[in-house]
Nucleic acid binder design. Structure first.
Lengths: 185, 185
DNA sequence: GTCTATAAAGCGATAGAC
DNA sequence: GTCTATCGCTTTATAGAC
């Protein structure tokens, strides 16, 4: 397996997979090296501060995906209902029936959350606020919009837990569909 | 700190705290020894198979708490509405505003779930079925009762994620209150 | 940019004295 | 039942050759 010059950006999806699968503490440089095909020397070349920097980069990468595919549509809503549908579709596709865990949720529950606390808070807060604004556009009052947005996001995160516990992707897809229906009601 | 004869049962709450705080992989025998005040020799005396057996025992312990405080009321419902209120109260009190994470949720998202998969599946399935039965007694049709039960449990698990990300216990308490209201509607 | 070798620390687990 | 000492392994991280 001859290896060419790697780019930091190309590594991020593979790193994300590792962190998603094993959590932060469970992810080892050995496994990361195996998945990326890179030795520790290369990994430290791209991420001088090691594992912590890799995890930060993964969160930042997902954040920017999220910005484009979820927050973007929510913030420029031609039609509020359409942007809600886009959000739910993007979420469902991205998480693959709950099999692809959200590292933000994983880190929020897990033991190594302190270093990532600001990123976690920001992520869910931005999402929640953007969704609440759309719900106001769709006709809700400001206060109900906020709780409904928070509940929708919680329902999605919780559905991921249940889907993985049941080992059944349909659990996740069904839950997201009901979230969508409730938001559109 | 002179140490007396310990009992396995007394250790379980402390072990649960460690696993809750650090996750499975993040929990080390060093930390467990520190929290329990016991050396590795003692720990292996109580749990010959080591860390895995400790985690299993913690899940079993929570399961039996759950059986008494949540499933019990749900299964012998004098008044369905009352048993729903009891469930929500027990959940809220037990999780302390989401600060005390549910190890079942943590393990479901985390990387070491395979050894615990049967316990995880059983836990959420029993909870879901018991709640669905109560909802049927409260007047729902069988199918809506099932999805509503699953959604309620997901809402609780997801609220734990959001509460920890926001570092705000009120997020959890509020979400549980709304779950209760929806189930009682 | 990538590798191998290696350091230093921590890991789970065991043995054996008390 | 509890401890200390220790084993063998893995961990993160660094150094230096190429």
């Amino acid at each position: 397996m001859p290896r060419q010059v790697a780019e930091r950006t190309d590594l991020l999806p593979k790193l994300a997979d590792v962190f998603r699968t094993h959590g932060y503490e469970g992810s080892t440089l050995g496994e990361i090296g195996r998945v990326t095909g890179l030795g520790k020397g290369s990994l430290y070349h791209f991420f001088p501060r090691g594992k912590a920097e890799m995890a930060e980069a993964v969160l930042a990468d997902i954040e920017s995906w999220f910005e484009v595919n979820v927050l973007g549509p929510l913030r420029h809503p031609g039609d509020p209902r359409r942007s809600i549908r886009e959000m739910c579709h993007a979420i469902d596709a991205h998480h693959r029936g709950g099999r692809r865990v959200c590292p933000f949720a994983l880190f929020a529950l897990g033991g190594a959350r302190e270093p990532f606390a600001p990123a976690l808070r920001r992520h869910f807060q931005q999402w929640s606020e953007a969704l609440a604004r759309v719900l106001v556009l769709a006709g809700r009052g400001p206060a109900p919009a906020r709780t409904e947005a928070a509940d929708a996001i919680a329902a999605i995160q919780g559905a991921m837990v249940l889907a993985r516990a049941a080992d059944d992707p349909r659990v996740f897809a069904g839950a997201v569909a009901r979230v969508e229906a409730r938001l559109l009601a």
